[in-house]
């Protein structure tokens, strides 16, 4: 049962990953190329020869198979983790069936894993960000990611606890408590300001919107595809199928 559910999660993640790759390749790559072009121009202006630095992986590979590998691997892994969380949430967090639980979980995941971390530490194209701060930026990003997931879990637990008072009241109370906690955390964490003054604001905006879009396609895909796959598995399981009254 669990192995099969996990496999379905990873398959959903792979399919959603293909869709997300299409968005990344068509809308994202132009912005990545702009940033790399700018990086090279700066190197030339500084009297360096950008072609002197050996390319470990060619741009052509990076922007095609490399990008596909990164997004598909992330999609499959995210889908697998999603299936594990779903296994616990189903029948516990809400009274919804498999498809409803999966769709709702995908929305919660998008908010906790994508929106909250990106509001504070927005995605940056190459040429933005300095090499010396990568350690600090990595710790801050993953730290915020973990805290954000924890706050979402707490909000769901709070809503479940207040549920007897009515769905509206429970939802709004837990939602406001979650929002207050998120705002406090975002204000408390240090900001990262590394965008060069001459970087195109337009390109940066598009890059960040594309990142949100890639994740939106990925998580919507996981939520809907996995929901359909899980529904079938659960309906076929004599143990999980509700006994006919």
């Amino acid at each position: 049962m669990m192995g099969n559910l996990l496999l379905r999660g990873m398959i959903a993640g792979l399919i959603a990953g293909v869709l997300a790759f299409a968005v990344a390749y068509t809308l994202g790559e132009p912005e990545v190329n702009y940033a790399i072009g700018l990086e090279e121009q700066k190197a030339i202006a500084a009297g360096e020869d950008p072609s002197a630095e050996p390319e470990i992986v060619s741009r052509e590979v990076q922007s095609t198979i490399g990008l596909a590998t990164g997004i598909l691997a992330f999609g499959a892994a995210a889908g697998g983790i999603f299936a594990l969380v779903f296994a616990y949430a189903y029948g516990r967090a809400t009274t919804l069936g498999a498809r409803g639980t999966s769709a709702l979980l995908a929305v919660a995941a998008y908010v906790a894993v994508v929106i909250v971390p990106q509001v504070k530490y927005a995605p940056n194209p190459p040429a933005v960000g300095s090499g010396e701060t990568i350690g600090a930026r990595t710790s801050l990003f993953f730290g915020l990611l973990v805290v954000s997931i924890a706050l979402m879990v707490l909000a769901v637990l709070l809503a479940r606890r207040l549920w007897a008072q009515g769905a509206w009241r429970a939802g709004i109370t837990a939602g406001l408590a979650w929002l207050a906690a998120v705002v406090v955390v975002l204000l408390a964490l240090p900001s990262v300001k590394e965008v060069p003054a001459d970087f195109s604001a337009d390109s940066l905006y598009r890059f960040r919107m594309v990142s949100l879009a890639i994740h939106a396609v990925l998580w919507a895909g996981i939520g809907l595809i996995f929901g359909a796959l899980a529904e079938r598995l659960i309906a076929a399981s004599p143990r999980l199928r509700p006994a006919a009254a």
Partner: peptide
């Protein structure tokens, strides 16, 4: 690399 940047 490109996936890493675009995934944020």
């Amino acid at each position: 690399h490109d996936g890493r940047h675009l995934l944020g």
